[in-house]
Design a binder for these strands. Structure first.
Lengths: 218, 218
DNA sequence: GAAAGGTGTATGGTCTGACCATATTTGGTC
DNA sequence: GACCAAATATGGTCAGACCATACACCTTTC
């Protein structure tokens, strides 16, 4: 086992044993290296791994907030994961989009009321001047839908999908030229959720994404 | 921007520009450091990030296979992500299990034929002597179901969920004492898929996981 | 006493150079 | 041709140094 992996295991074990939680600080790199009898570079590589996994955040300087602080932000890691694996062609855009459809259908079937963020995104989309702006609010609409389902893991995945596909979406809207159909889809989804009609909400989401797929794929 | 982040961006840009794919090699750490005019430690931290994301694998020694080779193994990263975030209590076991239910329902609705791996896991479960052994084959059964749906992203997520929850599952089976009900569920799922009855397959998966949930949660 | 400013210091970030273990390549030897 | 030893390129690790940053602390000033 490489040294930094042993450090990783030690840190993880300490988090569990000491009951550390979000906001708590880890010892400094030099102190950690001394305690574990390893070089500072090995500690740094372990911390880099934890940072990549969205578990710690390093702050320079001095004071209560300096050093490696425990956080929990899996969305960024997921986004990197999707982006790089899409780049290596071991995942297709089709698979990513199908996953999104699955999550949104699941969410639409479970939300009991439309969150304010959905209505806000809806009105903001009306005034969108550019494809970029439209996609920004469109994404906010769909993320709000997922958030309303109350599953933080799915919310994180949805945000990652968003980041991985935003450029495709902007390009698709640009090719499409207009957003009237997409907008009416949005209103249909919103209305169904506000009415508490889960089946209609699922159907509306499915129809909306099917329409969008035609323009995103290829 | 930190130096290693710039290195990261450069490497990613190079992968895209040169059309590198799985199996291709990156330059050595020293050579990369020289090309980018940075220290070797910065290159190493960047490579550590890529390794964490399941995109490169480093081999020591000399020869065609030595050095940083491009791979694509997102499952390990996802497993680490879930395990650490479960440890920090920003995700609950309930949310993870609901995600699994969603994926398995989605998969059950789409598979057209049961893969051989499902039948194998089914017969292996009959002879399982310990909870550990039973869970091993149970997992193989469910992973095979997801694999049959043909979405590599979902397969990777399913494998990550498996790794994150295997200890919970073993404990649940131990408490339960017997696996008769779970086994009959498995046969029902398998039969439904072989018969091509998607609705029945989804219903069987839902009932099976609902039963399992009672013993895993709390 | 309070405000302002300067100094000290602990932190992460980076670089350099060295050494080790490993695994292949190379070249010599029988 | 087969075998063995040396050279070499690779990642892995360590030690030490220096930098930029941001807070802590003390001094000065009013």
């Amino acid at each position: 086992m490489r040294t930094f992996e042993a450090v990783l295991a030690q840190i993880e074990q300490r988090i569990a044993a000491d009951g550390l939680t979000v906001g708590d600080r880890l010892p400094g790199e030099r102190q950690l290296a001394g305690q574990l009898q390893v070089g500072r570079s090995s500690v740094r590589e372990a911390l880099r791994v934890l940072e990549t996994l969205g578990v710690v955040s390093s702050q320079v300087g001095r004071g209560p907030d300096a050093g490696a602080v425990l956080i929990s932000r899996p969305a960024g890691t997921l986004a990197d994961l999707l982006r790089l694996n899409l780049g290596l062609a071991t995942m297709s855009a089709r698979e990513v989009l199908d996953t999104r459809l699955m999550i949104e259908r699941w969410s639409a079937a479970r939300v009991t009321s439309a969150p304010p963020a959905m209505a806000e995104a809806l009105t903001a989309m009306d005034g969108a001047a550019s494809p970029e702006e439209f996609v920004t609010h469109d994404i906010a609409f769909h993320v709000a839908l997922t958030d309303a389902a109350g599953n933080r893991l799915l919310s994180a995945v949805m945000r990652a999908l968003r980041d991985a596909l935003v450029s495709n979406a902007v390009e698709a809207v640009r090719r499409l030229g207009h957003t009237d159909d997409l907008q009416s889809d949005h209103r249909r989804i919103h209305t169904a959720i506000e009415a508490g009609d889960a089946d209609e909400a699922v159907e509306a989401v499915t129809a909306h994404l099917a329409r969008a797929y035609e323009h995103v794929l290829h």
